[in-house]
């Protein structure tokens, strides 16, 4: 059928019902994808906008942490030759010699100084935020990739592959996470241990690894369920009849239809990972070398009566971050809700 061939459409689309808007209108030519419709909905949601702004501020603070610290002349550790030594900052009781709790507020150290180590609390907070978001982001990316891929495979494959994958999903879901983390963290870390810098990186990656290992199943199971119903839709059969290769059916036909549940799962898993990092570090099985909000909370608990500011700043920061992430996540879920689609 070349351009010469064309069936005269005797009864063309003329007599047919038309879409509501005039199809001839030139400015309307580009269609709006369901994702763009959802984003439009999101932009009109006040809670989502406020939450996003809060998150953006936190992210910018985390990204700019080194610049801010430089400018403020504060240091998260004593590696820097310019950093003050603990003895310069602390008195005989290992409490700060400047600022709260014993002395009045000072702009040099607006959130005070850490007892025992003499490091600046603002610097610790900014770098802790950085760690926290890095871990959450990495864990989310990897667990999403693993969860989506295995979920797609399990849902589409049927039979033995599905049975094996479903068993693995159930196995990891029923495995006690804390126990696994307790057992695995030191093993992974010790394999990479070396100088302090390598150890710090190894610790971070092993934490991400553990979070991913126990964090991909929820999404995998969700995706598998969605694929089970999607694969019965006729457009999947149409692709099969055309001869579209299986991997293209998975990633080009099915995946775009899973944007909503994936976005929702991501937006809800980031706060969970932030909380998990803080929790594990608080328990001492997360990060020991990098600055971490959870670790700070752990040390600060001992000073709760004498030095409440030391405890409250990381706690409030974690709370604001997790609440904002959850609110935005909920709004995203509402915006992408499949029931209101189409």
């Amino acid at each position: 059928m070349s351009s010469g061939l064309s069936v005269d459409a005797v009864d063309g689309p003329g007599g047919e019902e038309k879409p509501p808007e005039d199809p001839e209108a030139p400015q309307q030519l580009a269609g709006r994808s369901p994702t763009r419709i959802a984003l439009g909905r999101l932009a009109r949601d006040k809670v989502a906008v406020v939450g996003t702004v809060v998150l953006l501020i936190l992210v910018v603070l985390a990204i700019m942490a080194p610049l801010i610290c430089d400018w403020w002349n504060i240091y998260p550790d004593q590696k820097d030759p310019n950093a003050p030594t603990p003895s310069q900052m602390l008195d005989g009781n290992q409490l700060p010699s400047f600022g709260p709790p014993q002395y009045p507020f000072t702009w040099d150290h607006p959130l005070g100084i850490e007892p025992q180590s003499g490091r600046d609390n603002l610097a610790l907070l900014l770098y802790g935020l950085r760690t926290s978001l890095t871990v959450a982001l990495l864990a989310t990316v990897f667990s999403t990739v693993v969860g989506v891929t295995l979920g797609l495979l399990a849902g589409y494959a049927k039979g033995a592959v599905d049975a094996v994958l479903s068993f693995v999903i159930d196995f990891f879901l029923s495995f006690p996470f804390i126990l696994g983390a307790l057992a695995l963290a030191p093993i992974i870390t010790s394999r990479f241990g070396g100088d302090q810098d390598t150890l710090r990186r190894a610790e971070l990656l092993s934490l991400v690894g553990i979070l991913v290992l126990f964090g991909w199943m929820g999404l995998a199971r969700l995706i598998r369920g969605q694929v089970l119903s999607l694969r019965e839709r006729e457009f999947v059969q149409a692709a099969q009849v055309i001869g579209v290769p299986t991997w293209q059916i998975l990633f080009k036909e099915l995946l775009p239809n899973l944007v909503a549940p994936i976005v929702v799962a991501i937006s809800l898993s980031i706060p969970a990972y932030v909380a998990a990092e803080a929790g594990l570090s608080f328990l001492g099985i997360g990060l020991t070398e990098s600055p971490s909000l959870g670790k700070t909370v752990n040390s600060a608990v001992n000073y709760f009566e004498r030095y409440p500011l030391y405890l409250w700043t990381p706690v409030v920061t974690i709370m604001i971050m997790v609440i904002a992430l959850n609110l935005v996540g909920d709004s995203i879920r509402d915006a992408f809700d499949p029931k209101t689609r189409r």
């Binding site: 006729e234 457009f235 239809n257």
Partner: peptide, 20 residues
């Protein structure tokens, strides 16, 4: 597959809603 094709029953589920 080029030679044998199919037209489906349900015009709503036979087109991928995420594709143009």
């Amino acid at each position: 597959r080029r030679e044998v094709q199919m037209i489906f029953q349900d015009p709503y589920s036979s087109l991928n809603p995420r594709h143009t």
